[in-house]
Nucleic acid binder design. Structure first.
Lengths: 340, 340
DNA sequence: TTGAAAGCGCTAACAC
DNA sequence: GTGTTAGCGCTTTCAA
């Protein structure tokens, strides 16, 4: 016998509790599941027996009988290394895990590596979880949108799909956030405002670029200074170089992530450009990069921990059959620091 | 019927596969579990049936019958916010999740908040997982060491306990790493080498301080410049201030984490001290703090992703009844950058 | 309000 | 090598 079997072997069963309390197994089950149709005295007796035995329901048996797993999958996108390097995702996981810690649900971490996507899909479809949380949804992975038809699925960020209106998602208003950031630059007298955007196959990439453009056009300013990054510091650094190489005047930068802004700072320093004297920067994300860059960044705070707890809450409510709005928008706010 | 039940309801069962393949359920079970005692032809037939039906074993039923859950808990310590802010932990989780993605095991994230520690304990003891991974083990939480007696438990980092020799853990050689870092400073002519250490109730905190002291004493240098931090940037910043406030000369600093080193940099800048001209710094961790500080830090790389995959591997092998050494030491190496 | 009985889908002896 | 037979521990009609 391996060590692993030891604990399960001696675990008290519902039947033992029933014997000790002098009732049937059904009754114990009702008490455990909080059924209202049980006499208070019986509840007391059963509860006492449960405490005495230290009874914990066997999750597998429960799942098998009830056809519910009490597990929720958190699907992590293909590019794992980048995923974990980004503090945004860590915060979202944290929020989701913390919310679920107070519920009866457990979080299962799933790595959807490209080679194993079929395995992941099967796992999800195979009734192993009651719901799924999908993060960082690119335009090329539509399988998760399909999954929505078979079980509750909630996306962190608006999913890229024709019928995203059918999906449940929690997001910040990226367009508005980008507009606000850009407007801040405009209000501070900047005239040549560039953007380093996110990838064009991610909703947050597209929407933030749109917000930047809207603000610029509303102010009658040029909106051609656009280079794309991948949300990472090095992506930001390279995009900034390309921007600088254009040889056009730039006095303002809207970076779609603080990580990219921090990378841009490196390129700017190389070129002998000072922030905020020569160029003002506003970014999105209030993470370590925003707080510890030199100078600290004026940025839009998108509460990512809260976004994590929100996607978890939505999926739980969906599982419970509650009526939940398809889109949940988390508010953002601008934090003024020294980069403008 | 809630959405959640939909998928499970139509899911093909092992029995359907058996019918389609014209064999008994036991045989299908054998094929699914890779039993060697099945004719190749039967394997082919059954595999074909499985593919045709898109059969996925029901995890709950399997667990119930086999008394194995195929789930492994990753227990995250009480202070969640700090936990997630530290890239070290994110890397360890990443490593563990990636390793398990290639196995039949699933990772369940458990938040062991102080208010819910009883719940966590119950969950673990209740046969919900086949094994547990414990990170960041402080000296005051001995319950997990006890848990080792009931199921395979592997610690990330040497657990703080009288009988840590009884536990399985994966760690770097913290003493040697700290010694090497300090020696590097000595070799570069530093004479007054301070340390900002980790907490004194964590093994990594204690061991790294010891390594620093050993190197200093071996070189006949003073080992009194010691202030404690909590591995975080702000902890490092405050510790550096206390060090500076002592008014003693300091020309070298060994920081027990890159995060603390990055915080120390802030305090140093305030005092008008330059790195590496006035003071040389070596830290531990090759994370983005080490890479993106100004200047980039000379540091000891402890491969945390690898540590994560190692704890996962050890627990899986333990579950499989294999013989595994109680301690697994991951090698470290020094990366030279510009802080010395 | 409670109990009896019938599975949930799978594994694991045990026979053949 | 393969099938038969019991359950694993729980939920859930259905009666009482």
């Amino acid at each position: 016998m391996s060590i692993g079997e030891a604990s399960a072997a001696n675990a008290p069963t519902l039947e033992r509790v029933a014997e000790l309390a002098g009732v049937s197994r059904s009754t114990v089950s009702r008490v455990v599941n909080g059924s209202p149709n049980v006499t208070p005295e019986v509840v007391t007796a059963v509860t006492a027996a449960i405490d005495r035995l230290g009874y914990v329901p066997n999750r597998a048996a429960r799942s098998l009988a009830s056809r519910r797993t009490h597990a929720i999958a958190l699907v992590i996108p293909e590019n794992t290394a980048k995923f974990f390097a980004d503090p945004y995702f860590a915060s979202v996981i944290q929020g989701a895990a913390m919310y679920l810690a107070d519920t009866e649900y457990t979080l299962s971490l799933l790595i959807a590596s490209e080679t194993e996507s079929e395995k992941t899909r099967r796992y999800l479809q195979g009734g192993n979880v009651d719901g799924a949380l999908i993060l960082s949804h690119h335009s090329d992975d539509s399988s998760y949108v399909q999954l929505s038809q078979r079980m509750p699925v909630v996306f962190g960020g608006r999913p890229m799909s024709e019928d995203s209106s059918q999906s449940y998602f929690v997001d910040v208003d990226n367009v508005a956030a980008a507009r606000e950031a850009t407007q801040y630059l405009i209000d501070h007298g900047k005239k040549n405002i560039a953007t380093i955007s996110g990838p064009h196959d991610m909703a947050s990439g597209i929407d933030r670029t749109q917000g930047w453009r809207e603000a610029l056009e509303a102010a009658g300013l040029d909106a051609s200074l656009h280079e794309e990054g991948d949300f990472s510091p090095s992506g930001g650094e390279q995009a900034m170089r390309r921007l600088l190489d254009r040889g056009q005047p730039i006095d303002g930068l809207f970076a779609a992530s603080a990580q990219m802004a921090s990378g841009a700072l490196v390129a700017l320093r190389e070129h002998g450009l000072r922030v905020p004297e020569d160029i003002g920067i506003v970014s999105i994300d209030n993470d370590y990069y925003a707080q510890n860059s030199l100078p600290p960044l004026t940025t839009i705070d998108q509460p990512s921990v809260r976004q994590g707890s929100a996607i978890a809450e939505v999926v739980v409510r969906l599982i419970n059959g509650e009526d939940v709005p398809r889109r949940t928008i988390i508010p953002t706010h601008l934090i003024e620091r020294q980069s403008v």
